[in-house]
Simulated scan of single mutants.
Amino acid sequence: MPVQTAAHTLRQDADRLASGYPALLAEADRVAALVAAGVHGRRRAGQGESFWQYRPYDVSDPANRIDWRRSGRGDAVFVRDNEWEAANSVYLWRDGGPGMDWRSDKSLPTKRDRASVLSLALASLLMCGGERCAVLGESERPRSGRVGYERLAQRLARSDGDMVNLTGKIPAYAKLLLCSDFLTEPGAWPTKLAALAARPASGVILHIIDPAEESFPFKGRVEFQTPGGWLKPYLMGRAERAKEDYQARFAAHCEWIETSARHLGFTVIRHRTDQPPGPALTALYQAFEGSL
């Protein structure tokens, strides 16, 4: 495929994925505004004491952040980051796998959309409190402020949520938010979580669940298909007979997530897409409030 054609195709795919961005951003702002009334901001005075690194100035940085002595050595303008800022950076990852685009009823949001809304709303609350946020594996650095939030929102909306982004570079003391249904090819998640265990980071796992995935309401003759097609379709004659065994396996799946999270030092928050997002956002914010 010619380079120009490939680039055009990628741009079309990105535009398609981000087509719901304004609505997602509006929903995230609405949810964040509702929760903000019940939580307290934590903006901290000062920039910290220990030097972390110099980095190029960005338009989202206030002018008083510029280190004029370092900038005076050349033509580029630099900002001085400190350990406090590195330790108060949150990296967001929202799974973009095929299964995240599924919903059991048209009245429900897809798991991908609900994960995006909660991620954006959390970023809004944290950044208002003085924290810095980035999209794991895609943002060049954590940002703060309204301009930083809008850039993060656009990047998250366009993100394909590839699992390879979980290997993205992060500072030693940063925090992570991982949003997924954790339903994918066998063996994929244990490997990824084991790799995370070797990294000096902790945070929160947001387990997104469609209500049908937990209740298994299917009856009669039903054909089950795997999003992404990694298994062949399976036709079941009387689906209700499998309900008890399925629910036992789903409960074991949730327990595995809890156990894996404990080994990582992560907190797990479960959220069903048929429930309002406010309580889940409050739980997310409180989890990060206690660790930052």
Rank of each mutant, 00 (worst) to 15 (best):
M1Q: 14
M1W: 06
A6F: 11
H8L: 04
Q12G: 14
D13G: 11
D15F: 10
S19R: 11
P22V: 08
A23G: 06
L24C: 05
E27W: 00
D29Q: 14
R30C: 12
L34N: 15
V39A: 07
V39E: 08
H40T: 15
G41N: 09
G41V: 10
R42Q: 15
R44I: 10
Q47S: 03
Q53E: 10
Y54M: 06
R55H: 03
Y57Q: 09
D58M: 07
A63K: 13
A63V: 13
N64F: 04
R65M: 06
D67R: 00
D67H: 02
R69C: 01
R69L: 11
R69E: 10
R70C: 06
R70K: 07
S71R: 03
G72T: 05
D75F: 14
A76Q: 11
F78S: 03
F78V: 14
N82W: 15
E83N: 11
V90W: 02
Y91M: 10
G96C: 04
P98S: 02
D101N: 13
W102H: 12
R103L: 09
L108C: 03
L108G: 12
P109E: 11
R114K: 09
S116R: 09
L118Q: 01
S119L: 04
S119K: 05
L120Y: 01
L120I: 09
A123F: 11
S124R: 15
L126M: 06
L126G: 00
L126A: 09
M127T: 14
G130V: 06
E131N: 15
R132H: 15
V135H: 02
L136D: 03
G137C: 03
E138S: 06
E140G: 12
V147G: 14
V147E: 09
G148E: 08
Y149C: 03
R151W: 05
R155S: 03
L156D: 00
S159E: 09
S159V: 05
L166C: 11
I170T: 15
I170D: 08
P171W: 04
A172L: 10
L176S: 06
L177P: 00
F182S: 02
F182R: 06
G187K: 13
G187I: 10
W189D: 10
P190W: 14
P190L: 06
L193W: 08
A194S: 01
A194Q: 09
A197S: 14
G203Q: 07
V204I: 10
I205A: 07
L206S: 09
H207F: 08
I208V: 05
I209V: 12
P211R: 06
S215I: 01
F216H: 03
G220Y: 05
V222H: 01
V222K: 01
E223T: 12
G229L: 00
L231G: 00
P233C: 13
M236S: 08
A239Y: 08
E240D: 04
E240K: 00
A242C: 02
D245L: 11
D245G: 14
Q247P: 01
F250P: 02
F250V: 12
H253N: 06
C254D: 04
C254Q: 10
E255K: 07
E255D: 09
I257N: 14
I257V: 15
H263R: 14
L264Y: 03
F266R: 05
F266T: 00
V268M: 04
I269H: 05
H271C: 02
R272D: 08
Q275N: 13
P276T: 08
A280G: 05
T282M: 15
T282A: 07
Y285V: 08
A287H: 04
